[in-house]
Amino acid sequence: MTQPSAPQPSVPQSSAPQPSVTEPSVGQPAGREAGAPAPRAGRRGRGRLAGLAGRAVVLALGVFFALLPFVWMARTAFGPSQSALSLTANPIPESVSFHAFQRAFEEAHLGRALVTGIVVSLAILVLQLLTAIPAAYVFAWVPFRGRAAVFGLVLATLLVPSQVTAIPNYVTISALGFANTRVGLVLPFMTSAASIFLLRQYMTTIPVSVLEAARMDGLGLLRTLRTIVVPLSMPAIATVSVFSFLLSFNEYLWPLLEARSPEIHTPPLALVTMMNSPSMGLPDFAVLSAGALIISLPSLVVFLVAQRRLTAGLTGTGVGG
């Protein structure tokens, strides 16, 4: 079910009368026994049919527009060269090739950018986990006077738009001598209040008895964290990791300010640079699409792989009631 190649999922016409998750047939009056087409013929039948048709239309349109940019991106990337003068709206490419991908890699130095993007995002992720897990543990289980105030302060940092901190951060990073370096791309994101918050919410669900037992067994702080808290919080850690990676990999404003030299451009920056200064003449949309597709892939892969776990992790953070 995590295969991306299902652009036309079955629209609900056939399946809608079946019982749904939120509406189990258990306990429903006999007249609404789901599945059988017979009850639909009744007075309420026409209304239900109209509702079904409405749903089908909404879903078909929704899926169409959700996928259109992706489909168009792929169609253009695999098709022949296209400039503003030779645009086409023909959904079937005249010829299919990987040529545009090759050129995107060469012209936008996408290979280099991808390495930078992945390394920077992973470094941010590791730092965030190292800083957030201990802090989340304290906010969940270690009381001290003023904890509520400190936690409130942590949450308040979520209010500050990144554009506001960008200016002083640029000054700080420059003063530390990290301007225009990969370290400078990582440091400002070394911790995340959002990660602390999510992890803390999840950690509060660890049973008291487990922590008590750990304590009676004489487990030290670090061992408790390593052998009890972290393994038990794995779903939340996975969720936080995925969001962290996606956010850092797609970050645009900070690299735009910080990474002045093309050698340390992140993927989005490399793509925009290529768009604004094509190597010759007009931008080639095939190459741009190939580039867009390439830089979208890491996020999509992470998202697809993590999709199921993500929902599980979210449920654990208190969403599941």
Binding site: V11, P19, T22, A66, W72, A292
Partner: peptide, 28 residues
């Protein structure tokens, strides 16, 4: 909500824009 068959694929398709790289999509 009431879709049973193909629900996973359906949700996936509708989730995709959230996971998209905004810059890449803007280019498209």
């Amino acid at each position: 909500q009431k879709v049973v068959r193909g629900r996973g694929a359906l949700r996936l398709a509708l989730f995709l824009p959230v996971s998209a790289n905004l810059v890449a999509i803007a280019v498209v």
